[in-house]
Design a protein around this nucleic acid. Structure first.
Lengths: 158, 158
DNA sequence: CACCCCCTTGACCAATATTGACATAATTAT
DNA sequence: ATAATTATGTCAATATTGGTCAAGGGGGTG
């Protein structure tokens, strides 16, 4: 029954809960105790199996009453187009390119016009004014990557 | 349903009152007694959960007949509210603070939920992963400033 | 055998909550 | 006026969580 691999067991345990609810909230120390592993292994499991790439959202809080919450998101109906955009996105992205990407998303009805405008505000040169222009382009690329990845899923929360 | 965390309970209690009135006035010692905590913890709750980033203003008076009053900033006109949030925004902004700001904007109907989620994606640690943590906080601050700036002009057109 | 990938561990770090001693302000009594 | 009383404010110490990182372990693969 039990795998020799504790990380897989912990993953299965959490996903089993997520089959019936679309979020789990745990206390790290408690889960670590239950599976008889060191607390930081919980972080390892979360980072390797519940990342944003896999459609999960993780929130946590330290200190008294701290917790880790994993929220499951649903795959969009048409993720293929978004995937292609992600894969063809360069390492360094100019504001002009970013505008083109956002426009495409708007044309495809994946973003509303206002959503696009707000996001472009954050992708502007003024917002991303960091030392080097190349670094600015890298940063813009990462912001877009994160956005595209997020758009592959839809939130199920209120 | 009671959190193991008293500060959250006190926050919830106050916000529940604020759902029906747009301000609440308390006697610190009385609330402290009711929740069985030390009086200064009330100050902690107010400072961490009812600041301007969260859309609240706090007035108080000491001595006989003293009180603490929490007022929703929604009473003000929209551009002023946004201005106050901008001015009270620190130079370095954590993701937690950013979440508080976005939540406030959502609560005031200035952003939709989805807009807030997409913007938070770009304000996340993963998106803004740059060398230093301080730099990351500065960057996040600038992104938020840009956003608030844009939203202010938007609201002025009404 | 050499290598690589993934898992596991623990030392150290960071964030949040709680408490209490002491300070400050406003009101009331003398 | 002054003192006593009644409130809230500040700050630093301590407690209570989760986060990061780098080193080591173990099994499969070329």
């Amino acid at each position: 029954m039990a795998d020799s691999n504790m990380s897989d067991n912990i993953e299965a345990y959490l996903k089993q809960i997520l089959q019936q609810a679309n979020e789990v909230e745990i206390r790290r120390a408690e889960i670590a105790r239950r599976f008889n592993v060191v607390p930081s292994q919980i972080n390892y499991v979360i980072k390797t199996r519940f990342g944003a790439e896999n459609g999960y959202l993780v929130e946590s809080k330290r200190g008294g009453g701290g917790y880790i919450r994993i929220v499951k998101m649903a795959l969009r109906t048409e993720p293929d187009l978004i995937d292609e955009m992600r894969q063809s996105l360069p390492e360094i992205v100019s504001f002009r390119t970013a505008t083109a990407v956002i426009s495409s998303l708007y044309r495809e009805k994946i973003l509303t016009q206002r959503e696009g405008e707000l996001l472009l505000t954050m992708l502007s040169k003024e917002a991303l004014a960091v030392g080097d222009v190349a670094i600015q382009g890298q940063l813009r690329a990462r912001l877009l990557q994160q956005l595209l990845n997020r758009l592959r899923f839809e939130s199920e929360r209120d």
